[in-house]
């Protein structure tokens, strides 16, 4: 599982790790827009056996990082997906409702629900903010519905597959396009122009040995809109280049032991995000056919940077699952992650 086992008492690492034990299970977490360099805000969704809550916390990075709870907002059901933009927060729940909140907190850090939508039947599994003027929210669910809501106007478009397909992840690619992920490692490219709908499908040429799985997370880099990064079952991380229609670019897989890709994990890859940190200065110099480095977290407790053709670099190897993480967009050296055993980890890279 772990390629390089690390722990807090192993030889000094280049990055610093701070742990914040919580009293509740963490479902999801995000950085909020930075107000000042010395004060950062976090959004945390937690659950107990009886209730679910969305919290705002402030993080004081120096001298030792300290988390202070600011406010909390009770929710009717567990959060399944959480996304933020500089102005908005979108939170989807297991019971199928979608909440839109403003991400401009006032001084008390209070959260205010701007809109609530119940367009899904059953769990919403993915949500993303973007689209035209960045105020469109797309949500996908197990029920096979893809809903695009224009925040503020309240106009909505619903694509219903009537349960014939289930979608598990979604990410905007451009103001009019987004990509969805689903069962059988499927990816679908949607275009909202005209009648709207799926315009391109990725059905991987996986070969005989490969076991099918579920895409849990997708990401698209703003500078590489033609490439979609996906993470899912069996430690699988792959990229789909629209220009190379049906051939996946494997970054990690526990199923294919052909030596072309490393398996950073053997288990579910819960989240993938392009890593702005290492190559923030030289993104442009990487050949456009090469996949940019990405960070992943997994059920078997790995947080690592994966890069095409290179050994994965483990940032954390935990004895329990790492269920979610978020890279600070304004300060990409900082990553927060949520562990299965009720704790939050702040990782600061040098």
């Amino acid at each position: 599982m772990a390629l390089i086992p690390l722990s807090d008492d192993s030889p000094p690492l280049h990055h610093q790790i701070h742990r914040f034990p919580q009293t509740q299970y963490i479902d999801s977490l995000r950085w909020l827009p930075q107000l000042s360099p010395s004060l950062r805000h976090l959004l945390l969704s937690t659950t107990t056996s009886s209730s679910s809550t969305l919290h705002t916390l402030s993080l004081t990075p120096t001298p030792t990082p300290t988390l202070t709870p600011l406010s909390s907002l009770p929710l009717p059901s567990r959060i399944t997906s959480l996304k933020t933009t500089p102005s908005l927060i979108a939170a989807s729940t297991l019971s199928g409702s979608l909440f839109i909140l403003s991400s401009n907190l006032n001084s008390n850090g209070f959260l205010k629900i701007e809109a609530e939508k119940g367009l899904h039947f059953g769990p919403i599994l993915g949500v993303d903010l973007g689209g035209g003027e960045g105020v469109e929210c797309v949500s996908v669910g197990e029920d096979g519905r893809v809903c695009v809501v224009r925040v503020g106007e309240g106009s909505e478009r619903v694509f219903d597959s009537k349960g014939l397909v289930s979608y598990t992840a979604v990410k905007w690619a451009s103001p009019v396009e987004f990509v969805t992920g689903g069962l059988g490692f499927g990816l679908q490219w949607w275009d909202m122009r005209g009648p709207g709908g799926v315009v391109s499908k990725f059905k991987g040429n996986w070969g005989q040995k490969m076991k099918s799985g579920i895409v849990h997370s997708v990401d698209i880099h703003p500078s590489r809109k033609h490439t979609c990064l996906a993470g899912g079952s069996s430690g699988t991380i792959f990229a789909w280049d629209l220009r190379w229609q049906q051939q996946p670019i494997m970054l990690s897989s526990a199923e294919i032991g052909d030596g072309t890709s490393q398996a950073v994990s053997e288990s579910e890859v819960w989240e993938v995000q392009y890593d702005n940190y290492i190559h923030s200065s030289n993104t442009g110099s990487i050949s456009s056919s090469k996949i940019l480095p990405a960070v992943m977290c997994s059920e078997d407790g790995i947080l690592a940077v994966v890069e095409q053709g290179q050994e994965p670099v483990e940032l954390l190897a935990e004895p329990c699952a790492i269920n979610c993480f978020d890279i600070d967009k304004e300060n990409p050296s900082d990553i927060i992650c949520g562990l299965e055993w009720e704790s939050l980890v702040l990782l600061t890279r040098p």
Binding site: G144, L164, V165, L183, S212, I214
Partner: peptide
Amino acid sequence: HDWKHGKKGSAVYWLQQ
């Protein structure tokens, strides 16, 4: 469960697995 709740695709996936 999924079949009963009309999630045909998901049902087929899990039964295949």
